[in-house]
């Protein structure tokens, strides 16, 4: 009998309201079955509508690296793919606020969980290096807001 044929043990426990809720999966390897469970959990945590080549996709908010407004159009950037959103940046900023997103410039809202490191740029600005290697600029005006959010 293969390991994947065995039913998983399911453990649910109550935690203190101050703690963040979490789902932890113990597995022998990350296969299709685990990916499916992960996708399901992400889908229950909020989605955004994204469009590419005329098709609409439901994108888990947690998968979005950053959102950018370019010439009155709004784009959702994932690890490798880009989707267009029909919503304005300020609307998406409100929707994603509880998912640890923060405005870092006039045109960019970034997912803090996807930021790898921060380094200086010119003129009092900073550069966010994301976990997929991309870099986005933090305007001087938004640095204090970022600091406050990180300090909680």
């Amino acid at each position: 009998m293969k390991n994947t044929d065995k039913p998983m043990d399911i453990e649910v426990k109550l935690i203190h309201p101050d703690e963040n809720e979490y789902v932890k999966i113990g597995c022998h390897k990350i296969d299709e079955r685990i990916d499916e469970i992960t996708r399901f959990i992400k889908s229950r945590q909020g989605n955004l509508e994204g469009y590419t080549e005329g098709d609409m996709y439901s994108i888990p908010i947690a998968d979005v690296y950053y959102i950018e407004s370019v010439d009155d159009r709004t784009f959702l950037y994932l690890e490798k793919d880009t989707y267009e959103s029909k919503k304005r940046l300020y609307e998406l900023e409100k929707v994603t606020d509880s998912f640890h997103f923060i405005r870092i410039s006039k045109s960019v809202v970034v997912n803090l969980m996807k930021v790898d490191s921060i380094r200086p740029a010119l003129n009092g600005r900073f550069l966010c290096k994301l976990k997929n290697g991309e870099e986005v600029i933090i305007s001087r005006k938004y640095v204090q807001g970022l600091k406050d959010k990180l300090k909680g």
Binding site: N20, Y22, L112, I118, R119, P120, V143, K147, K149, L150
Partner: peptide, 18 residues
């Protein structure tokens, strides 16, 4: 400042990830 922000970021991510 960037070093301090990166440290705060790591602490923030660790806190969220439990």
């Amino acid at each position: 400042k960037a070093e301090s922000l990166t440290n705060d970021l790591i602490a923030f991510q660790n806190k969220i990830n439990g």
